[in-house]
Amino acid sequence: MPATTIKAGARLQLRVAARRVCAQGIVALDLVAPDGAELPAFTAGSHLDLFLPGGFTRQYSLRNDPNERRRYALGVLREPGGRGGSAYVHDRLKSGDLIEASRPRNAFALDETAPFSLLLAGGIGVTPILAMAHRLSTLGRDFEFHYCARSAERMAFRDEIEASPFAAQMRFHLDDGPAGQRLDLDRLLGGRPNGAHLYACGPSGFLDAVVSRAAAAWPKETIHREYFANAAPKPTSGDQPFTVTLAHDGRSFEVVPGRSIAEVLSANGIVIPVSCEQGICGTCVTRVLSGEPDHRDLVLTDRQRADHITLCCSRARSAELVLDL
């Protein structure tokens, strides 16, 4: 069947082809085109925005092999303290339902040329790391995959992984397991194989530990991580007003404390795509032509921070920012 033609930027209409509980608090979803056509291609590390009833937009990473073109495979953790998106998926979404999604986007790209890749996953952070393992296996690249979970009951997709072509490259670690089974970050990250890149995804505490342990032996540009939540946003008590100017037409707007740049622009009829509103997905990243941003995101690289900003959460240290809008 030929692929359906989908305009760039258009929302996808997808059908829930399969749904199963795959671990404590985690649901696995397979999404397909309603007519069975091929879906837009994706790369390892990509995610989808799901547009859920009630105005919720949530990001979920693709876990399956990027060579697959007829399904998007996701894993969704129920977030007890969340804003309702995961509760909808767990409690109301069922096989056969139709759902809207974005095209795949990637803010956590894999360097496919690295001679060795070290993959680290904590909890539901296994989803994008799984797609990376599939891709590296297909390419015949050398890699090692470490997957950590609180307990065996919370470890999703273990059956999938043990049946995969890269099962021999897997190491499983349980917080409640024997001491020798727990992940030893100091041993693992104390040295760096020649040309190696490190990829980590999981809870903020897990990622902070990985990055701090790797700092001595791994150059910054070889450490890649993806957060699922901005757990420690900067305090806002000292925020000052500033001006944003649009380079394309010269209009300027004041951004007062308590309002984001994206909110101010939207209120003035300038549509800014926003998804996570926490600076973790990269949807609203915009080029800065002049001025000094006050970065509060967890998605931009050090190089990007020189001339880009996340409009959903970051502010300005200078009196004005001129944006490439």
Rank of each mutant, 00 (worst) to 15 (best):
D324H: 08
L130G: 07
I6R: 02
R58Y: 09
A217N: 14
K234P: 08
L325T: 01
E153P: 01
F172H: 11
F172L: 09
F157A: 06
D65N: 15
L289Y: 08
L185Y: 04
I161G: 11
A167Y: 02
A319C: 07
D186C: 10
A179T: 15
D184M: 05
Q240T: 08
V32A: 13
K7R: 15
A133S: 03
G81M: 05
T5Q: 14
L139G: 14
A44L: 09
L311P: 01
L136T: 13
N268A: 10
V27P: 07
A262D: 10
V255K: 02
L265I: 01
R158E: 11
L188C: 11
Q278L: 07
M1R: 03
D302G: 04
D65G: 00
A214Y: 05
T113I: 10
R187A: 12
E221T: 12
V255S: 01
F253T: 09
H146L: 05
P257K: 01
P178E: 14
S318A: 07
I129E: 11
C281N: 09
I261G: 00
P293Y: 02
L118V: 09
G195N: 14
D302I: 04
H134Q: 09
T283C: 06
F172P: 01
L311D: 11
H134K: 01
D30Q: 12
D302E: 15
A17K: 04
L62R: 11
D297K: 11
I280Q: 00
H295M: 03
P80C: 04
